[in-house]
Design a protein around this nucleic acid. Structure first.
Lengths: 171, 171
DNA sequence: CTCAATTACCTTGAATTCAAGATATAATTT
DNA sequence: AAATTATATCTTGAATTCAAGGTAATTGAG
């Protein structure tokens, strides 16, 4: 059975419920934090549609895109990759094994350090990610198209501000 | 090994890399979509800190909070729950089994429909979630405290707008 | 009224992700 | 210089999540 959801603005309804059940609490921060999570969840689905057209999952796209962004020779150490992608090293290993199996990357031992490996985008991987990135960016443009330029600017500015707060180490 | 990240504003750096490597693409939507995902990821960690103080994981909190919000007698069908929580029915079953094992909910057959069950918050579950919600809301207030009232309003307004677009069925 | 077909509800097997462990290098002390 | 501690890199076992399947109830036609 598939997950479903009938939301209008579900978050507003949740806030009303809390107001009714726990009037002693000021739940207003949920108006921001709840909607943020919800937007991210819905976006994930939209973006995955494009990835799947290239037989890629979200994380596969991310790995290939990171190598691509690094520039020629499209070669990075696994540690650099998993730090950039904010995943654990174990997850990284599995992902690289899988991508190597599909011939999208190659892994070679690092001659200068037996602990380390060198991950490189294969020609096939390079061609694939170059196409996929173009489609991905086009998809993102389409998703945000209903937003006027001023709305986009306001949203981005707000997110920059929030991100600065969240990244501040003095939690 | 733990995941790490050294971001200043990592998204800005990524945009610059794409500009250098693929000047033919206008990657500006990533400025919004990338930061949104990043904010959500960082928030998750912050919120989990509070949940763990009550020996709750994020999903456990969500289930109990949904039952609590519903109001007395804090009783819902599993289907209502998994639709609200946007998870699959299989995941729901496991979670309810676990919560029942901890004595936080009870499950009884529905007398009107042998297919269905009734999930109810136990007294212990009610007491726990009432405490945890208060702490959670306080935590959210603390997280957003650096934002001025006007900034909060602008951010929320932007998110409401974006959410409306993303929820529009005409994908 | 009976039976078939659709719908709705819940439990089990495959895939993904994380925490802990094993090995190799570097740094420090004696 | 040898030994020891500490750091860094990558691969494996435990837990969580999703897709497919089985069972019960409702609907509608004959």
């Amino acid at each position: 059975m598939q997950r479903t959801d009938t939301s209008g603005d579900a978050v507003a309804a949740i806030l009303q419920q809390w107001q009714r059940e726990r009037p002693d609490l000021d739940a207003s921060p949920m108006g921001i934090i709840g909607r943020l999570g919800r937007c991210t969840a819905l976006l994930r689905g939209r973006l995955d549609e494009t990835f799947s057209r290239f037989d890629l999952s979200s994380w596969e796209f991310d790995v290939l895109a990171t190598l691509r962004r690094a520039g020629s020779p499209h070669c990075l150490a696994p540690t650099t990759l998993f730090r950039t992608l904010m995943i654990t090293s174990g997850t990284m290993t599995r992902q690289l094994q899988q991508l190597e199996g599909r011939g999208l990357i190659s892994r070679q031992p690092n001659p200068d350090d037996a602990r380390s490996q060198l991950v490189q985008l294969s020609p096939a991987g390079l061609a694939l990610i170059d196409e996929a990135v173009a489609a991905h960016v086009a998809n993102e443009h389409a998703i945000l198209a209903p937003l006027a330029a001023a709305e986009r600017a306001q949203l981005e500015q707000s997110l920059i501000r929030l991100l600065a707060i969240l990244e501040t180490p003095g939690d």
